[in-house]
Design a protein around this nucleic acid. Structure first.
Length: 226
DNA sequence: TGCTGATCATTG
DNA sequence: CAATGATCAGCA
């Protein structure tokens, strides 16, 4: 068994590839791919996701697009504990802080990214070294009406606050299923945003994240029959 | 102990 | 710097 040499040609092929990985440890997958497994992820936070990208044939990069543009599918690893509950929130995408007048949910990066997601849960409790963490069953998800409505509502509320110059007032407690949090290399990273009086301010870059209870519901929905 | 805010590595 | 992949870690 070896990593994919090219992107999958269909959603079915992608899901097949992902399901084959279920049961393997990250150490095994790294070995087979000829990659080094770090002892911990403190300085390798994106390692799991990049390993899975390698195995499934996604192009690494930093483009604000889906991982599989031809399929319209986004790939996301999801760390879970032994009882199958998410251990972390899930990063969605960078949040635009300028030039957002007239931007609609339909045009948003969030909607695009979440329109179809291949979720790959990984048993990743902190007491398990990365090499021993195991891949669980992948599943494909498209938001249903209610899920999309919930995402849309949070997005619209948060984006309205940003547009009104209230970005500094937004905390991770805003939003029912999705939150806005800092997203940067460190506290010195600054980007432009709209300020209170309508002028420009410098602020920390932000990203959208899915709250844990939302992704937990996706897991339950996907494995309800198991 | 969970969550929020902070942080790490890499690429374009 | 922007954006990707995320997890870390202090504090309530």
């Amino acid at each position: 068994m070896h990593p994919a040499s090219h992107a999958p040609h269909s959603v079915e092929e992608l899901l097949e590839r992902a399901r084959i990985l279920a049961g393997y440890s990250l150490g095994e997958l790294a070995d087979m791919a000829g990659l080094h497994t770090p002892a911990d992820l403190r300085r390798h936070k994106g390692w799991s996701g990049q390993l899975l990208e390698t195995w499934l044939g996604a192009q690494a990069g930093s483009k604000p697009e889906q991982d599989f543009p031809e399929l319209g599918v986004e790939l996301k690893t999801l760390p879970i504990d032994s009882s199958g509950k998410p251990l972390e929130t899930t990063y969605v995408c960078y949040a635009p802080l300028t030039g957002i007048a007239g931007l609609s949910w339909e045009q948003s990066n969030v909607k695009n990214k979440l329109s179809c997601v291949c979720w790959v849960p990984i048993e990743a409790s902190r007491d398990i070294p990365p090499a021993q963490r195991r891949v669980a069953n992948a599943f494909l998800w498209r938001p249903d009406k209610q899920q999309e409505q919930a995402l849309r509502q949070d997005w619209e509320e948060i984006m309205e606050m940003i547009a009104l110059g209230q970005v500094e007032c937004i905390t991770a407690r805003h939003g029912e299923v999705m939150q806005l949090r800092p997203k940067a290399a460190d506290g010195s990273a600054l980007t432009q945003a709209v300020g209170k009086d309508g002028g420009w301010i410098q602020t920390r870059p932000r990203g959208f994240y899915l709250k844990k209870h939302f992704t937990q519901a996706l897991l339950q929905q996907a494995f309800a029959d198991i």
